[in-house]
Computed example of a mutant assay.
Amino acid sequence: MNWLNELKVAYLNKNDSKLNELLDNTPILKTRDEMFEALAVMEQITEYAKAQKEKLGLEMRKLKQTKKFFPQQENAQRLNISF
């Protein structure tokens, strides 16, 4: 399988490690059609990477909010209120 087809398969499977490997080893493309096709796939990969970055940022914000909540919860459990 050639590099461009491997790149497409890795993108469709959302295989981040394979995408990184292929992008790190980008060959010299010989034809104009290959160049335009590779450019189109790379634009899609860029959009995918941006979406993953946004998703990760959202998850990190959620974790920070959760982290702020738990110490308050623990302090409330430590109170020994007896009647």
Rank of each mutant, 00 (worst) to 15 (best):
G57K: 13
K50W: 03
I28Y: 03
N2A: 13
T46H: 04
F69E: 15
Y11M: 11
E34I: 03
E47V: 13
E6G: 00
R32W: 03
E34W: 05
E47L: 12
L22S: 05
L63F: 07
E34S: 12
Q72P: 06
L23N: 09
K67D: 03
L63G: 07
T46Y: 06
A10T: 00
K67A: 09
T66I: 14
Q73C: 03
L39I: 08
R78K: 13
T31M: 06
L58V: 10
N20R: 05
E21N: 05
L7W: 02
W3G: 07
F36R: 11
T26P: 05
M60N: 11
Q77P: 02
D16G: 09
Q65Y: 08
T46S: 12
I81E: 10
A40C: 01
R78C: 09
E54A: 13
N20C: 08
E43S: 13
K68F: 07
K30T: 12
K55R: 01
A40I: 00
L7P: 00
K50S: 08
L19E: 00
K55C: 07
K53V: 08
M1C: 15
D16L: 05
M35F: 12
G57R: 09
K8A: 08
A76P: 02
K50A: 09
E21P: 02
D33Y: 01
V41G: 01
N5P: 05
S17Q: 05
P71Y: 14
E37W: 01
L56V: 14
T66Q: 14
